[in-house]
């Protein structure tokens, strides 16, 4: 029982981590809580679905439930979701920033954008659940009494690989260094010749792409629904706050902690209350360590 709950929790946690990294990156760079981030997960999942429906059905790869079309779909969806994020910034957020609106005004605007995006999904794809494929999978017993689908194992492995890649990118690439410098001090970065607008675009692109991957993974291991992102919003926020805004490994740890707590809590409290678990966790962390577990700076 416990073994299975831990395995399930790690999987949810991995997906939450990808979502939380994207959210945290944006919150760190642009200093506001983007309530529309969860809709990026939904859009990522649905855009991949659109591509999969258009492409001819391919042979399933190995033990997995999907073939090459889904891999193409993930790439398209990453770019598409990044572009949606950039469009939202160009049309709304950047204009508000230019007017020096308070960060809470941006939070409001993100509320409005979230409403528009979520209901657009309903318009285009309807309210029913969708799946990437019809293939049924046989779960593997990876440890005694712990069963996972091959897809789920792959999702976990890919999540780890993505986090490592992202870490290297932020640490060593020019744009990664520029992003970190802008988060520290935008004015000084500008004086040093960093193109702020370009860095902002990159931030949205990365954050959107990560959200898209998280959305596809969630769609692959559960199902694709218009409210899938919105239902994860609280868990995403909790993971990001738990980890400390702007900390990559913090967001990963936050995601895993939230995923594990949610899944282990099902052993002791009725499953109907599972969605409230992140909130309980959030209240505890806000009481004890509001700057997050892995952030050096005190921030209240």
């Amino acid at each position: 029982m416990i073994g299975q709950a831990i395995a399930d929790g790690l999987l949810t946690g991995g997906i939450l981590a990808l979502g939380a990294i994207g959210y945290s990156l944006c919150a760190h760079m642009l200093k506001f809580a983007n309530f529309a981030h969860a809709e990026m997960l939904t859009w990522g999942a649905y855009m991949a679905l659109a591509v999969v429906t258009v492409l001819p059905a391919g042979q399933a790869i190995g033990p997995f439930s999907f073939g090459w079309p889904l891999l193409v779909a993930i790439v398209v969806s990453c770019i598409g979701t990044g572009l949606i994020a950039i469009a939202a910034d160009t049309l709304v957020f950047s204009r508000l920033r230019k007017r020096r609106a308070s960060s809470l005004t941006l939070v409001f605007a993100s509320f409005g954008i979230a409403l528009i995006l979520r209901n657009l999904v309903l318009f285009v794809w309807g309210a029913d659940a969708h799946y990437y494929g019809q293939e049924l999978q046989i779960s593997l017993e990876i440890l005694p009494n712990v069963r996972m689908m091959p897809d789920q194992v792959l999702v976990l492995a890919l999540t780890v690989a993505l986090v490592v890649a992202l870490h290297l990118f932020l640490k060593h690439s020019r744009i990664g260094v520029a992003m970190r410098s802008m988060a520290e001090n935008p004015a000084l970065s500008q004086v040093c010749g960093i193109d702020i607008a370009k860095v902002v675009r990159w931030t949205w692109m990365l954050s959107g792409a990560l959200a898209a991957i998280a959305g596809v993974f969630a769609g692959l291991t559960v199902q694709i629904r218009p409210e899938m992102g919105f239902n994860m919003l609280l868990a995403l926020f909790t993971a990001a706050i738990l980890g400390g805004t702007g900390s990559l490994f913090g967001a990963v740890a936050g995601g895993l902690i939230v995923g594990l707590t949610e899944s282990l809590s099902a052993l002791v409290i009725p499953t109907g209350y599972k969605a409230a678990v992140p909130f309980g966790l959030l209240l505890i962390i806000l009481y004890l360590r509001p700057q997050g577990l892995f952030s050096r700076s005190a921030r209240v």
Partner: peptide, 16 residues
């Protein structure tokens, strides 16, 4: 807690 943290926490209350 200021601003967006309060927003997130109150959002959680409604869900709960």
């Amino acid at each position: 807690l200021r601003g967006d943290y309060l927003a997130v926490a109150t959002f959680g209350i409604a869900v709960t």
